[in-house]
Design a protein around this nucleic acid. Sequence first.
RNA 1: AGAGAGGUGGCAGAGUGGUCGAAUGCGACGGAUUCGAAAUCCGUUAUACCGGCAACGGUAUCGGGGGUUCGAAUCCCCCCCUCUCUGCCA
Length: 425
Amino acid sequence: MLQISVLKEQTARVLAGLAKRNYPTAEADVQAVLDLDQRRRAMQTQHDAAQAEANELARQIGGLMKSGDRAGADALKTRTAELKVQIKRHADELAEAEKQQTQLLYKLPNIPQASVPAGRSAQDNEVVREGGTKPELPADALPHWELIKKYDIIDFELGIKITGAGFPVYKGQGARLQRALINFFLDEARDAGYQEVQPPILVNEASGYGTGQLPDKEGQMYHDAADNLYLIPTSEVPITNLYRDEIIPVEKLPIRNTGYTPCFRREAGSWGADVRGLNRLHQFDKVEIVQITQPEHSYAAHETMVTHVESLLQKLELPYRVLRLCGGDMGFTSSLTYDLEVWSAAQSRWLEVSSVSNFEAFQANRLKCRYKAEGGKTQLLHTLNGSALALPRIVAALLENNQTPEGIRLPEVLHSYCGFSKISA
RNA sequence: AGAGAGGUGGCAGAGUGGUCGAAUGCGACGGAUUCGAAAUCCGUUAUACCGGCAACGGUAUCGGGGGUUCGAAUCCCCCCCUCUCUGCCA
């Protein structure tokens, strides 16, 4: 959620930012928030004044009662009765203005950073750099959904039987590869200075609001109605919410956490060839990195996170590219997002395996995640996160790119983690 | 899940209708003392919002919400959470 102070003091920048996102009714919505804010403040001033008078009278009545002056006390009560009605009315109007203002603010996406390119869709994203070399595959190369059958390492039909489509069962070398990748990613994150955490994978409503999944993206999460809990779509949600309603001592900054969790996405409305095999699932594994930094350090932190993810792809010997997302393709809460994609050789397409975002104070504002700045002033922190990495598409690329007549050759770095160096029948 | 107890400031812990944002202790910070330190002494020690250039003033917050009252940490109702015992269970 954007801060009102930003809307007020940097209106032009906000409008320009919303335009970059192709937000349709920017001018009207921003103006509406500012109007509501003015009304809200006027209400609050009146309310506080009436309340102050009522408090003072209550004190006087207390004194009169103590000295036995019933009549004097009763005389004052006619005024407090009036005030009571007033206060109630002011409080109602204040609450209404606040509610409307919050609802409007919930609608406004984060303001893109200056470096974010304009654009409407994924086609307008900017390729920042590429790494690795695309392999030359023989004509009879197989896509990963054929390879997993050939080597019997992932079974979609079994998943369908016990749960439903999009819940694969990993078997044998496939299961061990999952475990190896998780361990590899966690070890790399730890070596890069991230503390490992194991959060719950069900979160409450407040956490959903904290990181911005609620109220808008309700339909993307699995919901347990009996206890009003949500299955996490990413460990960003629990790990970032660890710091909700906190004032973090400055010496603990920056916060750097990493965690592995399964992730759950309903992906309502997605279908077609794009979602074959491991390309899109309802449940998948992901290692996440999260940073919480002082505002002046978040841009630099963001770059180190991208570099870290890149280093993973390099060690996995996968061809990749780094994209800077355009205003139209960026997530609602982000101010700058880099996507990292790997080349899936048999599908001949790039697959997104990581999204590294700086949310600046947008999440922190909802989370009330703050620190004490110089001079003792509490100030919102910046939150950042990135996948490091999401497993299924990594597996897809590893399988496709490294297929040989003798089996799937695995990158060196995984050999010790897996306990084998190639996948074979 | 059943029975009981309880949720107060960074922590511990008083406070059962009135000047209580809240005693006291600990911790932390600043200062005095000291060659330095310990001990001791003095002071400070929450968050949010509103008004104000500021100093400062006001309002709210004692798990959350609602109610009674001129006035609620304190009384009433609902919800959440924690602890103990019983049950169940990895």
